[in-house]
């Protein structure tokens, strides 16, 4: 598969995530859009990893080139999991305080 297809797909998912972040006010939806963006990046990383692996394989059949890309995805998932646990805790906290998950209520620092 041409690598550009994967790039376009990832960009599309990433942009949808961005649009979601920009247009929605529900903190949980915003959060999910961020997850969507992370997944778009993950997909791209795997695709690149396979691209490099394919190029390296032509010269060395035993190569493991590109494996670090997939490990990056693994670590991104680790970080995402940690982020989600803390982020959702913050949202719960916010809901407990202002009885809403509207991100526009998160402007307390301004005053």
């Amino acid at each position: 598969m041409p690598i550009q297809y994967y790039i376009y797909l990832s960009l599309a998912l990433f942009s949808i995530g961005i649009i979601g972040v920009l247009t929605r006010r529900n903190a949980i939806i915003v959060f999910m859009c961020i997850e969507l963006m992370l997944n778009a990046v993950n997909l791209l990383l795997v695709a690149f990893s396979k691209m490099h692996h394919g190029i390296a394989l032509a010269t060395d059949p035993a190569t493991t080139a590109g494996i670090d890309g997939q490990l990056f995805v693994f670590f991104i998932m680790v970080v995402a999991a940690a982020e989600v646990s803390v982020g959702l805790a913050i949202i719960v906290m916010m809901y407990r305080n202002v009885h809403s998950v509207d991100i526009n209520f998160l402007n307390r620092l301004k005053n």
Binding site: M1, Y6, S49, K50, M51, H53, Q70
Partner: peptide
């Protein structure tokens, strides 16, 4: 002119990772 390797390549297997 670059492609991603589809279906083959074993870096994604649990053993290698």
């Amino acid at each position: 002119e670059k492609t991603a390797l589809m279906g083959t390549g074993d870096i994604g297997l649990i053993k290698n990772l």
